[in-house]
Design a protein around this nucleic acid. Structure first.
Ligand SMILES: [Mn+2]
Ligand SMILES: [Mn+2]
Ligand SMILES: [Mn+2]
Ligand SMILES: [Mn+2]
Lengths: 227, 227
DNA sequence: TAAAATTTTTAGGCAAAGCTAAATAATTTT
DNA sequence: AAAATTATTTAGCTTTGCCTAAAAATTTTA
């Protein structure tokens, strides 16, 4: 239906719309997609003609409902494939993104639905990112950063917003992953770094790190510790 | 490494080299790939520059060792994905080809090897076509057509060379698939059509059909019938 | 608010991969 | 062996998606 390139633009616009208050600019897009601004302008004109985006010369771009639903379909595929790679094919969570970038463009309604079913209709991908359902609806979840909490809190890791290989490998090294329990032992005042306890060991996390770890308040930690 | 289009040409040349004695001509390729002869000529020049084919103006084309090994890698992926779709995702064997045409172009050594492993290193795809191993070596197998046999012979279906949806659906309707036992009851002299027995029922197969069904002599039919 | 800086768009090119129409080479027929 | 037919290649054009350099609009700064 749409080319790989067009799909990548839609996805990039979606992500930028999510992560910033203001409209999406040509330069932000060109940075995200590693292309030149001139190429972005051209593509935006094409996408606007196809009614996938609202584009006003010099004033940025936003997705139309049609564009948004297409973007969500691509993201759904991307995250389902990442889940498949980790759960079925022994990929580590820092190796999946590149391959998923290719697989997300495969066109087949049946393939996506059967894959979803085969995997047990997962709600979150290996990085804790929510997987939209077939209708494009994202699962309910609240995003709070580890950096927002205070000494004494015990939390469950639910996602990681910097998906770079190096950050994911750092987390691996310290055995921090999805559903890992983390309790805050102390916070340095001058740089807001945190000393946290993970299982038996204590780890120092920089503010950059704690801002990129999404957590949930742990309601059942007492119970689980007894079991 | 190579574009999807280039990969499709390599695959097409491979298949045509296999299925015909003589060299592969521009017109055969244009027919196979549903493009115009002029486009084929252009692509052949590009592939020759990249040392993937031997191309002599006006005298057809053949794969170099490099080209052949790349073609086999694509075919390996195609057939592994077809196997995956049928075995894991509830696809019927007449629905897989189109999706596999897309999946075969995904680039990731690890993906292919892990998929192969996950599937249990199958030797044949859902249509009975041999799957090359990682080194590009095809499993041993002998191709004989049902049309070569005579009344009284009992045979096991091992492959189907016309992979069109309609032929595969026809086989489905008559419950003929891989490893189905078929015995020849009679052969019409005037059109060489065959009356065969499959399980409890008798089916009439045209010569076109029997030429497209690959079989093996059944060594254990007596034993199996007793069990 | 006018000048400077920055961002965005336009203009003009390029490569891949397709097309049609015309030219040319190879093959078949007479 | 020449003519006719068929196959193949060349020439010229199109679209997609990218680029650089120049022009124009917007935003920031003074
Ligand atoms: Mn990813
Ligand atoms: Mn992810
Ligand atoms: Mn196939
Ligand atoms: Mn097949």
């Amino acid at each position: 239906m749409y080319s790989q390139s067009e799909e990548n633009y839609l996805k990039a616009i979606y992500h930028l719309e999510e992560s910033s208050e203001k409209g999406v600019s040509t330069s932000k897009l060109s940075e995200e997609l590693q292309t030149k601004a001139a190429s972005v302008t051209e593509m935006l004109k094409r996408l606007a003609e196809k009614k996938l985006v609202n584009y006003q010369k010099y004033y940025g771009v936003s997705l139309t409902p049609e564009g948004k639903s297409w973007a969500l379909a691509i993201i759904r595929k991307h995250r389902l494939w990442e889940y498949f790679l980790v759960e079925c094919l022994n990929f580590n969570w820092d190796e999946v993104h590149e391959v998923a970038e290719q697989l997300e463009h495969i066109q087949s309604k049946k393939l996506v639905e059967e894959l979803d079913c085969f995997l047990g209709r997962p709600s979150f991908d290996p990085h804790g990112d929510p997987i939209p359902n077939a209708a494009g609806v994202l699962p309910e979840f609240k995003k709070r950063r580890l950096s927002e909490f205070k000494v004494g809190d015990t939390l469950i890791c639910k996602g990681f917003s910097d998906a770079s290989s190096s950050f994911l490998q750092f987390l691996d090294q310290h055995k921090i992953g999805l559903d890992t329990l983390v309790s805050i032992k102390s916070i340095q005042e001058f740089d807001e770094s945190m000393l946290v306890k993970v299982r038996k060991s204590e780890i120092m996390l920089s503010k950059t790190a704690t801002q990129n770890i999404f957590v949930e308040k742990n309601k059942e930690s007492k119970i689980k510790e007894k079991v």
